[in-house]
C-alpha cells in the first residue's frame, strides 16, 4: 500500500506524469487508428504499454538535455514536448510533420526540444548519444544525454563500444534499456547469454547493475532523476534496465501471435502502467475529477491535432531535392 506520509514525489509531479503518459498512450492509439484507415503508410512501431519509461524521463529531463531513441520513438519524442500534430503529421507525410515528411515514423527529430533523432539501425544511436554527451563535457556545460533502446540492442557491437567509451571518458549520459522481453519476434532470453540483457552486462563496463519495473511510473521517475543527477554532477554514465511489455506487435505487420495468450493477458490486465497509475493516484487521495479532467483535456488535444494534421497539405515535390547539403540543395557537381 502507498505510504502517504513519506511521499517523495507529490501530487503535482504525479499529475504531470499522468498527463504525460496519457498523451503518449492516446497519440499512439490514434496512430494505430490512422493506420487502419490507411492514412499512415510505411511501417510503424508502437510503444503502447511502455509509456512509463519515456514518460518518467520526459518529466525528469530539463530543456536543453538531449534524447536519442529508436524507430519505436513516437512516445519518446512526445515526452520531450514535441507537438502532437508534428508527430502525427510526420507519420501521415504532411507538411506540418516534424520533418515535413522526409523522415517518417522511424526518424522523428525535433532539435528545438532536444529530440536529436530516432534511429532505425540498431545500436548506432548509443554511439552518437556519446557525442552530445562528449560535447557537454568539452564545452563544460551541464546538459545530460539520454539514450533509449530495446533489449535486442544489447547483442550488437555498437552497444558494447558505446558503453566502454562512455565509461572511460566519464560522459554525462544515461543509457535506458527498455526490456520488453522480445527482440522483435524472438524471446530475448533465447538469444542472449545472460538473464538480464543490459544489467548483467553492466559490470563489464564498471557500471552499477540497475533493474527497475519499467511499468511502475513512480519507480521509473525515481530512477530517472537519480541517473540524470549523477550525470549532471559529472559522476558519469548509468545503464538502466527497465522491464516492460509491448501491448502490440513489433511493427505494423506483426500481430504478435508468438507470445502466449496468458502472458499477454497478464501484462495487459495486471501490469498496464496507465491503468495502475490511475489507481495509484486515487490511493494518494487525488481527486478523481482532476484525473478525469486531464483525460478529457488530452483526448481533446489529440482530436484537434489529428484534424490539424489531416488538413495539412502534403509536401511539395521539390522537397525531394532540398537539404542534402547545408546550402539547402542537393547538387553534387558544377
Amino acid at each position: 500500500m502507498v505510504d502517504k506520509l513519506n511521499d517523495d514525489i507529490g501530487e503535482k509531479k504525479r499529475l504531470q506524469l499522468w498527463e504525460m503518459m496519457l498523451k503518449l498512450r492516446l497519440v499512439e492509439k490514434k496512430a494505430y487508428d490512422l493506420f487502419l484507415q490507411n492514412l499512415i503508410k510505411g511501417t510503424s512501431h508502437l510503444a503502447l504499454g511502455q509509456e512509463a519509461i519515456a514518460g518518467a524521463f520526459g518529466v525528469a529531463l530539463k530543456q536543453g538535455d538531449y534524447t536519442f531513441c529508436t524507430y519505436r520513438g513516437h512516445a519518446h519524442t512526445l515526452a520531450r514536448g514535441s507537438s502532437i500534430e508534428g508527430v502525427l503529421g510526420e507519420l501521415m507525410g504532411r507538411q506540418c510533420g516534424l520533418m515535413k515528411g522526409k523522415g517518417g515514423s522511424m526518424h522523428l527529430t525535433d532539435v528545438d526540444k532536444g529530440v536529436m533523432g530516432s534511429y532505425a539501425i540498431i545500436g548506432a544511436h548509443l554511439t552518437i548519444a556519446n557525442g552530445t554527451a562528449l560535447a557537454s563535457k568539452y564545452n563544460k556545460t551541464n546538459e545530460v544525454s539520454v539514450c533509449f533502446f530495446g533489449d535486442g540492442t544489447t547483442n550488437i557491437g555498437a552497444f558494447h563500444e558505446a558503453l566502454n567509451m562512455a565509461k572511460i571518458w566519464n560522459l554525462p549520459i544515461v543509457f535506458v534499456c527498455e526490456n520488453n522481453l522480445y527482440m522483435e519476434y524472438t524471446p530475448i532470453h533465447e538469444v542472449t547469454a545472460v538473464e538480464h540483457p543490459a544489467a548483467d552486462r553492466a559490470s563489464a563496463y564498471d557500471l552499477d547493475r540497475v533493474i527497475v519495473d519499467g511499468n511502475d511510473a513512480d519507480e521509473m521517475l525515481r530512477i530517472a532523476e537519480k541517473a540524470i543527477s549523477k550525470a549532471r554532477e559529472g559522476k558519469g554514465p548509468s545503464l538502466i534496465e527497465a522491464k516492460t511489455y509491448r501491448h502490440s506487435g513489433h511493427s505494423r505487420a506483426d500481430p504478435g501471435k508468438y507470445r502466449p495468450d496468458e502472458e499477454v493477458k497478464d501484462w495487459m490486465e495486471n501490469k498496464d502502467p496507465i491503468k495502475n497509475y490511475r489507481a495509484k493516484l486515487l490511493d494518494f487521495n487525488i481527486n478523481e475529477k482532476i484525473i478525469s479532467e486531464i483525460e478529457e483535456k488530452i483526448k481533446d488535444q489529440v482530436e484537434k491535432a489529428t484534424e490539424i494534421s489531416m488538413a495539412s497539405p502534403i509536401p511539395e515535390i521539390k522537397e525531394i531535392y532540398t537539404d542534402v547539403w547545408a546550402n539547402g540543395g542537393s547538387e553534387w557537381h558544377n
Binding site: I128, A129, G131, T132, L134, Y138, S145, A158, M165
Partner: peptide
C-alpha cells in the same frame, strides 16, 4: 580512443550535431 570505430565516428557525429 579505443579500437571502436563505430564509437569513434558516433561520438564525432554527436559532437558535430551540437556545433563542434
Amino acid at each position: 580512443a579505443p579500437i571502436s570505430e563505430q564509437a569513434i565516428l558516433g561520438a564525432a557525429m554527436g559532437a558535430a550535431m551540437t556545433g563542434l
